[in-house]
Amino acid sequence: MSHSTVPRSRSEAETTQQNPGASEGAPGPGARPPAARLSLRHRFRRDRVLLLMTLPAVVLLLLFNYVPILGNVVAFQDYDPYISDNGVVSMLHSLWVGGENFERIFEDSAFWQAVRNTLVLFFLQLVLFFPVPVLLALLINSVVRPRVRAVAQAVLYLPHFFSWVLVIAVFQQMFGGAGMLSQLLRENGYDGLDIMTNPDTFPFLLTAQSVWKDAGWGIIVFLAALASVSPDLYEAAAMDGAGRWRRMWHVTLPALRPVIALLLVLRVGDALTVGFEQILLQRDAVGPGAAEVLDTFVWWNGVRNQDFGYAAAAGLVKGVISIGLVLAANKVAHLMGEQGVYKK
């Protein structure tokens, strides 16, 4: 039994007769042939100027980011830097102890206290610090006059250039035992207040310092994202009867959503790094029980106590956990429909 074929239109039949290869996907007589794929050698010659421009950055990245990874072998040794003046020779001749350093870490209560302090500071900064640049960017973006916007952005961005020594000195003059706030309280018959040496308020103090110093840096990122939003979207929303708040909710925030998701993933990956220099400068004021975090724990045991293998093991545990946090946060971003750090 033969099957009947579907009749074709006259124009299609004529096209097929004139160009028999059209039905098989062959290019027509007027079509441009596909460009030949360049070899690796030709691509190097074509892009040699761009490759030379990026070469210094690649060399610096390899020397200061990837080559030091080889030093993680110290975490499995009783490393003695005084065996030789050459660090590589010292690593080759140091006693191999396997996982002994990791066993010491998991049995050390000081390590778990540092983990607890690190996580507390991370969650506080995530809740109290991360939304501040977004809110300030929305506030500055709503200002009509460009001169006022430029001045406000410059004032908020200026503390980013201050060193942590200067930032802590400013807070000491304001909230220390002899600071402005304490003197004002004494003049009005109240007891003085020393926030800088109070372990209970230390996490909030660190968060306030981070907000004052680095909020201006985040504002630039969000303002750049807001600048890419088409004004036609706001005009269309206004014509549909949307007020200021509804325009912000349905136009502005969706435009910021990819940037917020990306920065949030990066912030979660950096969760165990909560400010080494900032905390180290104030560690003695409140004690290690409140100020010891993973970075200062590694520094104290490695540099001060000369227990390099133990400190390297703690740093390696921190790095592995940070990678896991990045992957988990990026997966959550994908589930929310955002790209994250990398695509699926």
Score class of each variant (00 low, 15 high):
105 I>E: 11
106 F>N: 14
106 F>W: 15
106 F>M: 15
110 A>C: 11
111 F>G: 13
113 Q>E: 15
113 Q>V: 12
115 V>T: 14
116 R>I: 12
117 N>V: 13
121 L>G: 13
123 F>V: 15
125 Q>A: 15
125 Q>S: 15
126 L>D: 13
126 L>E: 12
128 L>F: 14
129 F>H: 13
129 F>C: 13
132 V>N: 09
132 V>W: 10
134 V>S: 08
136 L>Y: 06
139 L>P: 04
140 I>D: 07
140 I>W: 04
140 I>M: 08
140 I>Q: 06
140 I>R: 06
143 V>N: 10
144 V>A: 15
144 V>G: 03
144 V>Y: 09
145 R>D: 12
147 R>S: 11
149 R>Y: 04
149 R>K: 15
150 A>R: 14
150 A>K: 14
152 A>D: 06
152 A>N: 02
152 A>E: 03
153 Q>R: 05
153 Q>V: 05
154 A>T: 14
154 A>E: 04
156 L>H: 03
157 Y>M: 10
157 Y>K: 12
160 H>L: 08
160 H>C: 01
161 F>S: 08
162 F>Q: 05
164 W>E: 13
164 W>H: 08
165 V>W: 07
166 L>T: 13
166 L>I: 14
167 V>Y: 07
168 I>K: 04
169 A>R: 10
170 V>I: 14
170 V>G: 02
171 F>C: 06
172 Q>Y: 07
173 Q>T: 05
174 M>L: 15
175 F>A: 08
177 G>V: 04
178 A>W: 05
179 G>S: 03
179 G>W: 02
181 L>S: 02
181 L>F: 11
181 L>V: 15
182 S>G: 07
182 S>N: 07
183 Q>H: 13
184 L>D: 02
185 L>N: 10
186 R>Q: 15
186 R>D: 04
187 E>H: 10
188 N>W: 10
189 G>E: 07
190 Y>E: 07
190 Y>H: 11
191 D>Q: 12
191 D>E: 11
196 M>Y: 01
196 M>K: 03
198 N>Y: 02
199 P>G: 09
200 D>C: 00
201 T>N: 05
202 F>S: 02
202 F>W: 07
203 P>L: 09
204 F>H: 00
207 T>M: 09
209 Q>H: 00
211 V>T: 03
211 V>K: 02
211 V>D: 03
212 W>N: 00
212 W>T: 00
219 I>P: 00
219 I>T: 01
219 I>N: 00
220 I>C: 03
220 I>S: 05
221 V>G: 00
221 V>H: 02
221 V>R: 01
222 F>N: 01
222 F>P: 00
224 A>E: 04
224 A>Q: 02
224 A>M: 06
225 A>V: 01
225 A>E: 05
227 A>F: 04
227 A>K: 09
227 A>W: 01
228 S>A: 15
229 V>E: 02
234 Y>P: 04
238 A>I: 06
238 A>F: 07
239 M>S: 10
240 D>Y: 07
240 D>S: 04
241 G>D: 10
244 R>Q: 09
245 W>Q: 05
247 R>C: 10
